[in-house]
Nucleic acid binder design. Structure first.
Lengths: 205, 205
DNA sequence: GTAATACACAACAGGTTGTTTATTATTATA
DNA sequence: TATAATAATAAACAACCTGTTGTGTATTAC
């Protein structure tokens, strides 16, 4: 019995496929990429690609699933502190340590993240990530944004607002070359989302 | 001398092409659409398509340019009040009337807008629209978000935050069937972006 | 060392692309 | 309304990409 996932040939092949994918997305956008592009760049036979993935969408999905799984794991690692934050809740916000951890993860995987979140990236992934962000950072908190009747604004719009806004800030960070540290990004995300743009602009004390 | 833009055959053909495009984006997403799909759906010859557009990207770009041009016109129509708001400025915000006008425009063109802004839509358009939104609603105001030194958060992140957040709320509105009136959406957009999510959630007075 | 198997190579039919041709149908205009 | 202009059609074309398959070779795990 042999394990596909540890065979050095498979590992090497998949690595060069993923590497080629990221390069090509940054160059010409996911849409314009052909399987032939990928295999040429990865220096593998086209048939080999189809031995591992159904098509370029399958490849993309599997790469994205890995990212989402990693981020879920990070969230679960922070779960004790999330629970603590919820029970003593006054702030409808995920613990700062979680935001830092996620920022650090994005920083490490910035190659792929920049590609898929950039203007030539994958829209469906952004939609999924948006939902994940909302769920992770705000959705679990029963004391926060769930009391629909109190809302000045329908809850669905608040959720969309928060989700897309966070993605927007992350996109900008990745696009502009990650000049801020993950810790600083976590602070920016917290400041801007919790207090609103007026406060973040220094116009309100 | 005959005018291409008024020849009924041309008008009819282009209309059915655009109509087919919107339908197909909603069904299978822009990426999966072929020129053959479009021409079959529009019930025209494939050669006719290429007489008007280079490819599906060219078609998409021209449809999008029309939208952006319309929105620019609406903004310019509101320009007197924008100027007035800037000169007596205390709020880094476009006049409410402009937000209402833009919401109304989105409502009228909701077929196309829902398609291109939806999860199967066009990412590059969203990027451009985001920039347009920021420029239109906030970017022109010299008294607002431009004084970089005052920022608790770097200005570029504030801009990204506002731009993507607005798009996010609009997306949610289109996706969930436009239950709110354009006027109500304008109010929601104003409340949520100016005062921040805490206030909008009724958690801060 | 040896068996397992991932990979390369090559060929295949089927589909899309973008272009071009001759022909037909529709339109604008005098 | 007659007629000249021209948009749309049908059909064919090479070029390309797709997804699959079969054979032989090279690499790997055990």
């Amino acid at each position: 019995m042999r394990d596909i996932n540890t065979d050095l040939r498979v590992v090497r092949t998949k690595e060069s496929i993923r590497h080629a994918l990221v390069e090509l997305i940054n160059e010409k956008g996911f849409e314009a990429i052909t399987v032939k592009d990928i295999t040429t760049r990865a220096k593998i036979n086209r048939g080999t690609f189809y031995a591992h993935y159904q098509d370029k969408f399958d490849l993309m999905t599997k790469c994205e699933e890995k990212i989402m799984l990693d981020m879920s794991k990070i969230t679960k690692q922070n779960f004790p502190s999330v629970i603590a934050a919820l029970e003593t809740d006054s702030q409808p916000l995920a613990p700062f340590s979680l935001t830092v951890s996620l920022s650090e993860y994005l920083n490490i995987n910035s190659g792929f993240m920049k590609a898929v979140l950039g203007p030539k990236g994958d829209l469906s992934f952004q939609t999924r990530l948006k939902e994940f962000m909302w769920e992770t950072l705000y959705g679990n908190n029963p004391n926060a944004f769930i009391k629909e009747e109190n809302f000045l604004v329908p809850g669905q719009y608040l959720a969309s607002y928060m989700g897309t806004a966070i993605i927007g800030v992350i996109q900008q960070w990745l696009e502009s070359g990650r000049k801020e540290s993950p810790q600083e990004m976590a602070r920016i995300l917290t400041t801007i989302t919790v207090n609103g743009p007026y406060f973040a602009a220094g116009l309100k004390k």
